Amino acid sequence: MREPYFSDLSNEQRALIEPMITAWKQGRVVRSATGDSGSCDLREVMNALFYQNRMGCQWRMLPHDLSAWSAVFYYFRLWREDGLDQRIQELLRCQVREKARVSYRYTAAILDDPVLRAAACRRSPRLRA
Rank of each mutant, 00 (worst) to 15 (best):
E44T: 07
T22M: 09
G27L: 02
L16V: 02
M46A: 14
L42Y: 04
L16P: 04
G56F: 06
D85G: 12
N47K: 10
R126M: 05
Q95V: 09
I21E: 05
L42P: 04
M20G: 11
D8V: 07
R77S: 13
V115S: 11
R101C: 10
S7Q: 10
C40N: 10
Y75N: 02
A120Y: 09
D113I: 07
W69C: 06
N11D: 15
M55C: 11
R80V: 14
L127E: 01
P19V: 11
E81M: 06
W59R: 00
R2D: 14
T22I: 11
I21G: 05
R2G: 09
R31W: 02
P4T: 13
V96E: 12
Q58S: 15
D41S: 13
W79T: 03
Q58T: 04
R97H: 07
Y74E: 05
M46F: 04
D36I: 08
L92G: 01
Q13K: 11
S39L: 09
R122V: 02
R2I: 07
A68H: 08
E18N: 03
I88A: 07
S32F: 13
R60H: 08
R101M: 12
S70V: 10
R117Q: 14
S32E: 06
R105P: 00
G83W: 08
L62E: 03
A129W: 05
R97Q: 13
I17T: 02
S124K: 03
D65H: 15
C40F: 06
R87C: 06
P4Q: 14
F6I: 10
C121M: 03
Q58V: 03
R122D: 12
M55A: 14
H64I: 13
E12M: 07
R31L: 10
R117S: 08
Q26R: 11
P114M: 00
I21K: 01
H64C: 04
F76T: 08
A23C: 02
R28C: 04
A15C: 00
V72F: 08
I110K: 04
R128I: 14
R31V: 00
H64M: 08
R77E: 12
S39Y: 07
S37H: 10
M55W: 03
Q58G: 15
M55H: 05
C94R: 08
S10T: 15
R105Y: 06
P114V: 13
A119K: 05
L91S: 05
E3L: 09
E81F: 03
D113W: 10
E12A: 15
Q13F: 00
S67F: 01
N53Y: 14
A129H: 10
Y51W: 15
D113Q: 13
A109W: 07
A100F: 02
C57Y: 01
G35R: 04
G56E: 10
D113V: 09
G27E: 09
W59E: 12
L49N: 03
L9F: 14
S103W: 00
I110C: 02
N11Y: 07
W59H: 09
K25W: 00
L127D: 06
Q58L: 13
F73C: 02
Q26V: 07
C94N: 00
R93C: 04
A23V: 08
S67V: 15
L84P: 08
